[in-house]
Deep mutational scan, measured.
Amino acid sequence: QVNIAPGSLDKALNQYAAHSGFTLSVDASLTRGKQSNGLHGDYDVESGLQQLLDGSGLQVKPLGNNSWTLEP
């Protein structure tokens, strides 16, 4: 069960990665100043990332080996 409060997208993504045990490689300029609506409930990694990114204009991309990145 994930419980991440709304706020900074950077912070939300870092909390989610730490909670879910995956690696997220992101260029900080992509997420700077963006906000997230947070995340509450049970999600697989990709669904949770998509939910956190909702409205940010960013997309999640798998890199393999439980690693992910973001792209515009």
Rank of each mutant, 00 (worst) to 15 (best):
Y43T: 04
L9R: 02
N14L: 14
S20C: 15
S8M: 09
Q35V: 13
Y43W: 13
G7Q: 11
D27T: 07
G64W: 05
G38R: 03
F22G: 02
Q35Y: 15
P62E: 08
S25G: 04
S56L: 09
L24K: 02
G38T: 02
S8Y: 08
L52S: 01
D42K: 13
K34C: 10
S25H: 14
D42W: 15
G38A: 04
G38V: 00
Q1T: 13
T31W: 05
L24Y: 09
L24G: 04
S47D: 09
G7M: 13
S25E: 14
G55I: 04
N3T: 11
L58F: 05
D54I: 15
D42Q: 12
L13M: 04
G64Y: 04
Q1Y: 15
S20Y: 15
P62K: 14
K34S: 02
D10V: 08
P62N: 14
K61S: 06
D44C: 08
L53K: 00
L39G: 01
V60T: 06
I4H: 02
G33M: 06
L49N: 00
Q51V: 13
S8Q: 09
K11C: 14
V2C: 11
V26T: 05
N37P: 13
L30S: 03
P72S: 09
G55C: 08
R32I: 12
F22E: 01
T69H: 07
L52C: 04
G21C: 11
Q50I: 13
L49Y: 01
K11S: 13
R32A: 14
G55S: 05
N65M: 09
Q35I: 13
N66W: 06
D44R: 05
L53M: 04
N65T: 08
R32Y: 13
Q1P: 13
G41C: 06
Q35K: 12
D27K: 07
Q1W: 15
D10M: 13
P72F: 10
T69P: 00
S8F: 08
S29H: 11
L58K: 00
G33N: 10
Y16W: 14
L30R: 00
T23R: 08
D54G: 09
G57Q: 05
K61L: 08
F22H: 01
Y43A: 03
Q50D: 06
L9C: 04
K61H: 07
A5C: 13
L70Y: 02
V60Q: 07
F22L: 08
T69Q: 10
V45D: 03
L49F: 08
L13C: 06
G55K: 06
S56W: 05
H19M: 15
A18C: 12
A5L: 11
N3Q: 10
L13A: 02
Q35M: 15
S29M: 10
S67P: 00
Q50Y: 11
G7C: 12
N3H: 14
